[in-house]
Design a binder for these strands. Structure first.
Lengths: 208, 208
DNA sequence: GTCTATACCCGGATAGAC
DNA sequence: GTCTATCCGGGTATAGAC
């Protein structure tokens, strides 16, 4: 395999002179997984990568800027995973319900990413990149809903927003522990979200 | 009006020797409103009340215990406000939809309380009081839904959970800025939540 | 692009006096 | 129940050398 020169000395230091910027994002995700967003710090991330606390400042202006980069990554993975899990053959309403279920399972299976995307507490107006990264996610919902609503764009927008909010609510409450803990709770929450989405689709006349 | 002795010296120190415990909860809410949960600290709260940093430890074992107390207060106010805003005369489906709207408006109008209730990051298993305080909220949803579902308790449980999650999703996304900022955004989110709830009620057959 | 060194500030938490 | 005094640890951020 063809390694770049920078990847050849994994011992003692490992990442230095590699892609520190990307490594910091990875380390941040690990840290968030272990200690939550609040427990994440540039200092600890640096320590784990074997660099000094000053090094990150070459790549990120401050802590929040790194968190924003993690959020961007999170939305990318999120959208990709959701879009990838779709069954093209299934009927539209089933596809939409499956998306809601997938949304919840993503939150359960990639909690640090979900936290970074929605619980990082960064000022999004300062990081428009984050909003931009979030758009494909919205787009995926919208695309799935459009096939159901024919040409009625207003109806599609309303339904997509409702489905997204419902999926998000189930995910957020799951993370909060309202559905219990463990993978059974996650499965239950995903199933509930999917069923609620079906109900939403059935009763969508009421949305307008 | 009959003041207790401790309330008679509002100048110079004010709260000392008053009900410091309650005052700390109030101060915490103010601080969360200004700096978010993450920016809240016992030290700063103490400073504002004119007591030393050691004083709070007579009333709370640590920072998290105070946050838990704030969460308890939050759920109490939340449930009371939600139950109080109900129009007994309205048809059941309208009442349920109005509750979802009220849920979102509460989040918008009492953001520090909403944050304390759902975004404080405390370990709820360590503070069962918080879960206990949250139950009336669930109960209010359940009661409203029961009138619609007749005797079918399973159906009522499922619908109440779905409505709660949908309301929560809209509230969380609003807080996150997904619906924009300002009171117009809040109103829009509340209206969307209410409509989505109506759709949920209409299509509730799909929940089982 | 990374390191050394450092200045700075802040929060948590405790012991012991009053 | 509150204060004084204090310790400890930790994070942010910068200047300047290499």
């Amino acid at each position: 395999m063809s390694l770049t020169a920078s990847e050849e000395s994994p011992k003692r230091g490992g990442y230095h002179h590699g892609d520190l910027k990307a490594a910091l994002v990875d380390a941040a995700i690990d840290l968030i997984a272990e200690r939550g967003v609040r427990g994440f710090s540039l200092a600890e991330a640096s320590r784990r990568l074997g660099v000094t606390v000053a090094a990150p400042y070459r790549h990120f202006a401050d802590r929040d800027e790194l968190l924003a980069a993690v959020a961007v990554r999170a939305f990318q993975v999120f959208a990709a995973e959701l879009a990838g899990g779709l069954d093209e053959a299934a009927p539209p309403s089933q596809r939409i319900a499956a998306m809601a279920g997938g949304y919840v399972r993503f939150a359960a299976g990639h909690r640090p990413l979900f936290d970074a995307a929605f619980g990082s507490g960064i000022d999004k107006s300062r990081y428009p990149e984050v909003e931009r990264a979030a758009q494909p996610l919205t787009g995926t919902f919208l695309a799935a809903v459009r096939t159901l609503c024919g040409g009625d764009d207003d109806a599609a927008d309303a339904l997509a927003a409702a489905v997204g909010a419902t999926a998000h609510g189930h995910a957020a409450l799951l993370i909060d522990g309202a559905f219990g803990k463990g993978s059974e709770a996650a499965d239950a929450a995903a199933a509930r979200a999917a069923r609620a989405t079906l109900a939403l689709v059935q009763g969508r006349e009421a949305l307008r």
